[in-house]
């Protein structure tokens, strides 16, 4: 509910944001109001051919479908055949649905808990790797898991954690005769969280390192001369100079974490042969099950309603995050 309370502010922030950014392209001609300026005329001529195609594509492929989704979310509809208008019923229903709330809770766990773990680890690795020999190779190695399809991890989970799998076989010589039930329904989501940390940390480490590598070496020399500790160097040099990179990473993670779907789908639910246990559902899985589970009549209205809510969540979070992270960029 706190999100709901903050919404007007966020809305204003969004308005400000767009006000300060969008016109950037358009404001320029307005500023030099010399009629007949040849640059102005050229700009006007170029606006439509340059912006037009992208604008049309964007509208057709993104904005209209998004509005269409809002429209569908006001209906009871099986995907084809008759549509019945039900107003905001779908929204009310999913808010009363404990399963949606727990799925949504899982999404927030991914966003905040996994996000925090990823960024702490990524920062730590960045600092360690900066002075390490062979850092290029290490960077490639830690980036590699990000290239692998999540399906592979889903299948691997079986090999590793099945009752007769790798982990239990390795534990057996140590006298572990009654190992934990790794793949029990309640343990699947924590396993997914750990997997996500392992696969995503390398990706953000790479981006952060690119930011850290940009910092000119004389700042570090200055630090050494001033006798700054490693922490002070982080606090006064590295963090301020990579703040914008960090901010972008945070937004990237927010957007991608809310959409996490395939790894949940393949981790439980036996690589797509069934529906994963409800304990591991995220908001995206909830949306998918409502529309495409194949076990019952599709409920496109409820599915789009939960998708629209996810979109609203991302928008609010991104705006809040941008606001919280806003600093004057340090030029160097």
């Amino acid at each position: 509910m706190s999100i709901g309370l903050k919404e007007p502010r966020a809305g204003k922030a969004a308005a400000q944001n767009t006000a300060s950014r969008k016109p950037a392209g358009r404001k320029a001609p307005a500023q030099d109001r010399r009629p007949g300026s040849s640059i102005d005329v050229q700009r006007k001529k170029l606006l439509v051919p340059f912006v037009g195609p992208a604008f049309v594509l964007y509208t057709v492929l993104f904005i209209v479908p998004a509005l269409g989704a809002v429209w569908i979310s006001l209906h009871k509809w099986a995907g084809s055949g008759p549509m019945k208008f039900v107003g905001l019923d779908n929204y009310g229903r999913i808010f009363r649905d404990r399963l949606f709330l727990s799925s949504f809770g899982n999404t927030l766990l991914l966003l905040f808990v996994v996000g925090a773990a990823i960024f702490i680890l990524a920062f730590a690795m960045t600092l360690v790797l900066r002075d390490m020999a062979g850092k290029k190779m290490v960077r490639n190695v830690i980036f590699f898991p990000h290239l692998i399809n999540a399906l592979v991890f889903g299948v691997l989970a079986g090999f590793i954690f099945n009752p007769g799998g790798m982990v239990n076989s390795l534990l057996a010589p140590f006298g572990v005769t009654d190992p934990p039930k790794w793949l029990a329904q309640d343990n699947i989501f924590p396993l997914i969280m750990v997997t996500l940390v392992c696969t995503t940390t390398g990706y953000f480490t790479t981006i952060l390192m690119a930011g850290v590598d940009r910092i000119p070496p004389y700042y570090y020399e200055d630090c050494a001369l001033a006798g700054a500790s490693a922490f002070q160097r982080l606090r006064y040099v590295i963090l301020p100079l990579t703040w914008d990179v960090f901010g972008t990473c945070a937004v990237l993670w927010t957007i991608s974490s809310v959409k996490i779907f395939e790894i949940v789908w393949v981790f439980g639910g036996s690589s797509g042969a069934g529906v994963p246990p409800t304990q591991s559902w995220t908001a995206a899985v909830y949306t998918y099950v409502n529309a495409f589970s194949g076990q019952s009549t599709p409920a496109y209205g409820a599915a789009t309603a939960s998708a629209v809510l996810s979109l609203a969540l991302i928008s609010v979070l991104v705006v809040l995050l941008r606001r919280a992270m806003r600093r004057d960029a340090v030029e160097f």
Partner: peptide, 21 residues
């Protein structure tokens, strides 16, 4: 032949799983 929207996945399967597991 039960196919009511969401009944199987959201109501029946989770509780039946608890029983069977």
């Amino acid at each position: 032949g039960v196919t009511f929207p969401g009944y199987t996945e959201k109501v029946f399967f989770p509780r039946d799983d608890e029983l069977f597991l």
